[in-house]
Simulated assay, not measured.
Amino acid sequence: MAQINWNQFKYFKSERPNPMGLDNFQLLLEFIRSFYNFVNPDDIFELLAEDDLSRQMLEKRGISDSAELEEYLYKMLHR
């Protein structure tokens, strides 16, 4: 499985316009979808769960499995 490239994420975050005011976790999800081309919540959750910082982001939002991440993504896209 891939690992999150935090340097690429920082670059992505600095270059991406953020008119909707997304937080770092939401930007990280956008980064994973565009940089790694992951769209499956199972794959995204697995990637996030392997990294300490992103695991803390998951815990902060009460996301403990891919189904909860899928629900979060759904809410994020339909706000």
Rank of each mutant, 00 (worst) to 15 (best):
S14D: 03
Y11S: 07
R79M: 11
F25A: 05
R16T: 13
F25Y: 04
D23C: 06
E71G: 01
Y11R: 13
W6C: 13
N40F: 00
F45H: 05
Y74F: 07
Q3F: 06
K13E: 12
M1K: 11
L77W: 15
D42Y: 08
L28G: 08
R16P: 09
D52P: 10
R61T: 05
K75I: 15
M20Q: 07
D51N: 03
G62M: 06
E70C: 03
L47S: 03
D43W: 03
G21R: 05
L73V: 01
L73S: 02
D52W: 12
R79V: 12
F9H: 13
L58T: 13
F38T: 02
A49E: 15
N40W: 00
L28Y: 10
K60R: 14
L58E: 14
E15H: 15
E30M: 10
Q56D: 06
P41R: 02
I32A: 04
A67D: 10
M1I: 09
D65P: 00
E59K: 10
K13T: 12
E70R: 02
F12R: 04
Y74L: 06
D52E: 14
D52I: 12
P19S: 02
E30V: 05
F12Y: 06
D23L: 03
Q8P: 13
N18P: 03
F12E: 06
E15G: 14
L22P: 08
N7E: 11
F25I: 04
E68Q: 00
P41N: 05
L53Q: 09
R79L: 12
V39K: 00
M76W: 04
E71R: 04
I44F: 01
G62D: 10
P17W: 10
P17M: 07
G62A: 07
E50K: 11
M57I: 03
E30D: 12
N40A: 01
M57C: 06
D42A: 09
Y11D: 13
H78M: 05
M57K: 02
E15A: 15
E15I: 15
D65M: 01
W6H: 14
P41K: 01
I4F: 03
N7V: 07
I63S: 11
V39T: 02
L48G: 02
Y74D: 07
F35Y: 14
L73W: 00
F9P: 10
R16D: 12
M76N: 04
N18C: 02
Q56L: 05
K75F: 14
S34M: 12
S64C: 02
Y36K: 09
F12M: 09
F9M: 13
L73N: 03
L58A: 11
L77C: 14
Q26H: 05
N7H: 11
V39E: 00
S54A: 11
Y36I: 05
G21T: 11
Y36V: 06
N37R: 15
N40H: 01
I63F: 11
L22D: 10
M1L: 11
P41M: 04
K60F: 15
Q8K: 12
P41T: 01
L27D: 02
Q56R: 04
K75W: 15
M20V: 10
A67P: 07
K10S: 15
G21N: 08
A2D: 14
P41F: 01
Q3L: 10
Y72S: 10
E70S: 07
Q26F: 05
S66D: 09
L28S: 08
P17V: 04
S64P: 02
S54D: 09
E68V: 00
D23A: 06
E71M: 04
